[in-house]
């Protein structure tokens, strides 16, 4: 449980940080809740860690132009309790509340979680359901990636070398929307064996928009598009939930086989839909 020797730097500005990250065997240190355990287990051994914690302004939460902007360094606790997030995209606040324990939520960050892309992390499900946009920058680029194009595989994202997650943009929820996040927590790690985030809009009693993000089931989080379509075509939630995970690869481990995970994704999609429907006005 002792990491290899490494250097540490704490840049004071974003430019300085991006300059450092442009070369060398360097890794960003955000909340350290994933990086430090990996270093202690010697699964990661960067020559240098670049701590983003001293750069002012990376953790802000603002609302403008119909979007909520959340800085990458916002902690899970901040996301969970931010009045802006709770009012404008409560699905994300609710999801944040399911992450780890209080200590982890006080340290871990939104940017760190999505950059790490643990297949069992909670946020990706919500970001997919919310159709989030992720702004990534490097010393010489600045681009925006849709959440649906961001999570490529287990621990693999669309980030290029030298790029960092700067902020996450989420559309402000309409008053007619309902949402829900249902999670099966692994009894040892607390991570999601399966997590399903749902967002729906109901008009005249009909679902006119449905977004379903699923995490934990497969090597990366995905959108259950077939189920979304069925719901938008007027299918009953049970029927739609029953196709969640169809055609998607499922993980298997000591705790839950692929079949069981897929089954859980469907059951919890149905349950999350029921919660969302009860909340949709």
């Amino acid at each position: 449980m002792i990491p290899q020797a490494f250097d540490y730097s704490a840049p004071q500005s974003l430019e300085e940080a991006l300059g450092l990250l442009a070369s060398g065997d360097r890794k960003i240190l955000a909340g350290g809740m994933s990086l430090i355990p990996m270093m202690k287990l010697r699964l990661a051994a960067p020559a240098e860690v670049v701590d983003l914690g001293r750069i002012a302004g990376l953790d802000g939460i603002t609302e403008a132009g119909g979007f909520v902007h959340i800085g990458a360094m916002a902690t899970h606790h901040t996301v969970e309790t931010s009045p802006a997030v709770r009012a404008s995209c409560p699905l994300l606040a609710e999801t944040a509340s399911h992450i780890g324990d209080v200590q982890v939520r006080n340290m871990g960050t939104l940017g760190g979680s999505i950059a790490h892309a643990d297949p069992a992390a909670d946020y990706p499900a919500a970001l997919l359901a919310l159709e989030a946009e992720i702004r990534v920058v490097s010393a010489h680029s600045d681009r925006t990636v849709n959440a649906a194009d961001f999570f490529l595989d287990a621990f693999t994202t669309a980030l290029e070398p030298g790029e960092i997650v700067l902020e996450v943009r989420l559309p402000v929820e309409q008053s007619s929307e309902g949402y829900g996040y249902e999670k099966v927590a692994h009894p040892a790690s607390g991570f999601a064996v399966v997590g399903v985030a749902v967002r729906i809009t109901r008009e005249h009693g009909r679902i006119i928009m449905a977004r379903i993000g699923v995490t934990g089931m497969g090597p990366h989080a995905f959108r259950a598009r077939a189920a979304e379509r069925l719901l938008e075509e007027g299918a009953a939630p049970e029927r739609a939930a029953a196709v969640v995970g169809e055609g998607e690869e499922a993980n298997s481990d000591l705790y839950a086989s692929a079949d069981y995970r897929r089954h859980l994704a469907r059951i919890h999609a149905r349950r999350a839909l029921a919660v969302a429907l009860s909340r949709a006005s």
Partner: peptide, 29 residues
């Protein structure tokens, strides 16, 4: 009864070798 098991694979590797795999009883459970 509910959570813990030390599991070795066929080759004698302990696959529940960390607290993230070996499920101890926790206060909230």
């Amino acid at each position: 009864a509910l959570w813990e098991q030390a599991v070795y694979d066929e080759n004698g590797q302990l696959i529940t070798g960390e607290l993230t795999d070996y499920a101890l009883p926790k206060a909230h459970l």
